[in-house]
Computed example of a mutant assay.
Amino acid sequence: MAIFSGKKASDFSIDPFTDLLFNGLLTFTFLLLIALLLLNPPAKSGIIDPKAEFMITASWPDNDPNDIDTWVEGPGNKTVWFKHTQDGLMHLDRDDRGLANDMQLIDGREVINPLNQEIVTIRGRPAGEFTVNIHYYRSTNGREVPVTVYLAEVNPKLKVLHYATTTLRREGEEKTAVRFTILPNGKVSEVNTLQRSLVKGGKL
């Protein structure tokens, strides 16, 4: 028979507040460990360098086989496109060719990446005008393609400057999706869609 030195059994009951506090501490510790693991994730291919001031994405419907190209011209006639992926502070981080090269081998199985998207980053604020054009480089089915262009200022906080969809109707067609100017003080002005050709042989 157990002896409790004269103390009552109720003296050994657990205080509900203490139990709640202990459980809260365990939860906080678990979440802290998860956060520490996420701070240093394993390296992955295709990750965009976050050190950008502006990001431009051009996307068209998933699984669409047609090849759409993005051209961006900045101050001093600096231009990026699929054959010239870096010029000054502009970088073509992702060149998408429709379904071409979208096949990946994963665990011995062929998997198709359905996403059609090109990404251009501007890693600074050079003063001058920027022109963003989309070009229907090659068609495999002869169909028109709706292309959505998204322009965002990402530093110091995300600000959407332009978001619109433009339809390219035939191979070789080129359209200006958006133009904007960075002022000497770093601010953006004069966002518009005035048409201007960048692609030799393009049709505006």
Rank of each mutant, 00 (worst) to 15 (best):
R170P: 04
T181F: 02
V111P: 06
A177W: 05
T121M: 10
P146T: 04
M1S: 13
P114W: 08
L158P: 00
N63W: 11
P146K: 12
F54Y: 15
M103Q: 15
F82V: 09
I106W: 01
N63K: 13
T79R: 14
N116Y: 00
T27K: 04
T18L: 14
G6A: 13
D62I: 08
R196G: 07
G124Q: 05
V199G: 03
W60F: 07
G108E: 01
G24Y: 02
V132T: 07
E129S: 11
K203G: 04
E190W: 05
T18R: 15
E73C: 11
S197A: 15
M103T: 14
T70W: 00
D67T: 06
T131S: 10
M90P: 00
E73Y: 01
L198Q: 12
D19P: 01
E118R: 00
R125K: 05
L183C: 01
S197G: 12
G124R: 00
S189G: 06
L25Y: 11
L168R: 02
E53C: 07
T57H: 03
Q117L: 04
Y163E: 13
G108L: 10
L198N: 10
A58E: 08
A177P: 01
T166Y: 01
P156T: 02
P42R: 12
R138G: 04
F28A: 15
T148K: 11
K8I: 01
L161Y: 11
F82N: 10
T181A: 04
G6V: 09
L26M: 06
E53V: 05
F17A: 15
L151S: 14
T29C: 15
R179S: 14
L33K: 06
H162A: 03
L20K: 13
D11T: 14
I106H: 03
R138N: 12
Q195R: 08
T85S: 09
L99E: 07
E153I: 00
L37M: 15
F54N: 09
G128L: 12
L198E: 07
E173W: 02
K51G: 12
N63H: 06
D19S: 15
H91A: 03
V154H: 03
P61A: 06
P156S: 10
A127P: 08
L37R: 15
N40V: 10
F28D: 15
F17C: 08
K157N: 09
G74A: 07
R109L: 03
D62P: 05
D49E: 13
T193H: 09
Q117W: 01
G186M: 02
I48L: 12
R123K: 09
F30Q: 15
A164C: 08
K175D: 00
D49L: 10
L194A: 09
A58N: 11
V147K: 02
N66M: 05
R138C: 00
K7S: 11
Q86A: 12
Q104F: 07
V72Q: 12
G201V: 03
Q195Y: 06
S10Y: 03
E144H: 11
I48N: 07
